[in-house]
Amino acid sequence: MIKLKTAICNELNIQFPVIQAGMAGTATAALAAAVSSAGGLGTVGAAYMSPETIRNSIREIRDRTDKPFGVNLFCTKEQGSMAGFEKVQHVLNRFRKDLGMKETFDFEKPPQIFEEQFQVLIEEKVPVISTAFGLLPPDKMEQAKKAGSKVISMVTTVNEAIAAEKAGVDIIVAQGSDAGGHRGTFDIGAHPNGANVGTFSLVPQVVDHVTVPVVAAGGIMDGRGLIAALALGAAGVQLGTAFLISKESVAHPVYKKALSESTEESTVITKSFSGRPARGIKNTFIQEFEAAAEPLPFPVQNALTNDIRKAAAEKNRPEYMSLWAGQATRLLRSDEHAAQILENIMEEANQVLS
């Protein structure tokens, strides 16, 4: 098997230049450990986890592997407005009724727990801290470096990449609009639907404006995508959707089925579930909500829709679930272990170069 050692392999002490994205809700300790054990960098999506759960996940990974791994957090000061709450709740109650749930009109804003989450990463001395939606504040960056952690940040524009390098980030992930789920756009006010620059337009421009290693993300599923990214100057790739249907993924079975049946035409960028733009498979929730109301800002909208998404999963109703997915789903391989997915990518890369 080809080894393809690049700058991020040396920086992160990994065998292959492949990072598994820290997808909140689905990138658990089991998936992260499997990817890390296989030679990539596994990442726990800890943004919605309690500090205690994060600590337990870190320790679970260390029980499963002695390889490096990462933990991803949302790094944003967004508070969210309640303006328009009644109208949004009215629409959501239609969905609740269809799911056999009780209507609700009460709501409490989710607590801000970033400080506590981050402290766990410092105490546990995690090898890699990755951030989305923004950068670590200077004091947090200093703490991370003192703890011996490498810092990775997701960006969606060249200006964000330049800011990330100035802030002390070790590796930059350039996320194209092809990517599934939430991308790391810093300022949603300036880019209401995210900074929608395609992966292979974004990557070389970021590479030309920073000196730290750049990782390509968005619509990359196989060895061809890896080699293409390297040709554009990237030092590796970050994959999310590719690992969602792995055996280690905790994505719901109907979610995995929807992924395997989707195409490059299936996804849209929507704020309906969370209040932040995210790419997912278009379904009843997205269509009907967007026709009826404007979502509240993140994280309020995300908290408001949480009970619906959970109930939909319990009842096997994908039409009300957030089915995050990138644009290259025809390339997905179903029912494989994460290690096999990674091995296939590296073998395909070898074939491209041979």
Score class of each variant (00 low, 15 high):
residue 7 A to G: 15
residue 22 G to N: 01
residue 27 A to T: 06
residue 31 L to E: 11
residue 31 L to Q: 09
residue 43 T to A: 03
residue 46 A to E: 10
residue 48 Y to I: 14
residue 48 Y to S: 12
residue 54 I to N: 09
residue 56 N to F: 12
residue 65 T to A: 08
residue 66 D to N: 11
residue 74 F to C: 01
residue 77 K to F: 15
residue 79 Q to L: 14
residue 87 K to S: 15
residue 89 Q to S: 15
residue 96 R to A: 05
residue 96 R to Y: 02
residue 98 D to A: 13
residue 104 T to C: 14
residue 106 D to L: 15
residue 107 F to E: 00
residue 108 E to P: 02
residue 116 E to V: 05
residue 129 I to F: 00
residue 131 T to Y: 03
residue 137 P to D: 00
residue 142 E to C: 11
residue 143 Q to F: 06
residue 148 G to K: 07
residue 155 V to F: 07
residue 155 V to G: 12
residue 164 A to W: 07
residue 182 H to Q: 10
residue 185 T to M: 01
residue 186 F to Y: 12
residue 188 I to Y: 09
residue 193 N to T: 12
residue 202 L to F: 07
residue 209 H to S: 03
residue 212 V to P: 15
residue 236 G to N: 05
residue 236 G to R: 08
residue 237 V to H: 04
residue 240 G to H: 00
residue 241 T to Y: 03
residue 242 A to L: 09
residue 244 L to G: 04
residue 244 L to Q: 06
residue 251 A to N: 05
residue 258 A to G: 07
residue 262 S to I: 00
residue 263 T to F: 01
residue 267 T to V: 11
residue 273 F to D: 08
residue 279 R to I: 02
residue 280 G to Y: 05
residue 282 K to Y: 10
residue 284 T to V: 13
residue 285 F to P: 08
residue 286 I to K: 05
residue 289 F to D: 15
residue 291 A to W: 03
residue 292 A to Y: 05
residue 297 P to Y: 04
residue 299 P to M: 09
residue 308 I to D: 01
residue 309 R to C: 10
residue 309 R to D: 04
residue 314 E to K: 10
residue 315 K to G: 10
residue 317 R to I: 06
residue 319 E to W: 13
residue 322 S to T: 13
residue 323 L to V: 06
residue 327 Q to G: 14
residue 330 R to G: 12
residue 334 S to H: 15
residue 336 E to A: 10
residue 348 E to N: 01
residue 349 A to Q: 04
residue 354 S to H: 14
